[in-house]
Amino acid sequence: MPDPIRVLVVDDEDRFRTTLVKLLGAQGLFAEAASGGEQALALLAEKPFDVVLLDVKMPGESGQEVLPRIKAVAPGVEVLILTGHASVDIAAEMIAGGAADYLLKPCPLDELVGCVRAVYDRRKAVGAG
């Protein structure tokens, strides 16, 4: 059996984080959560993750500010933006900054999981090739 995909959920909404971790677990993924940029960076320095689900509007550092720091700490990790903030400008800016995709909350679970698997497969293909 292949290793499960390791996902890090970064979101300031407590309930959103904890339930998403449970849901991803039920889908056969390994998920952990961080409430903000600092905690996420500490976790990324500690252990490997494949995909980060990153919120944009958070107290303290915003998703835009955290994104380059994530890429610096864990260059191989794929970052998916998952936010309630509907801004084309921010989406474009973050994808230019290295994010793999931009998903708008509320995002159906199968779509989210599909997207996580897709960026994971793409990364593996690139890594192998």
């Binding site: 339930t19 309630g84 509907a86 909350k105 509320p106």
Partner: peptide
């Protein structure tokens, strides 16, 4: 949009 999307996302997940 932001303020309503967040609670909606939680409702959908629950």
């Amino acid at each position: 949009a932001h303020e309503i999307n967040n609670p909606m996302a939680i409702i959908a997940q629950e």
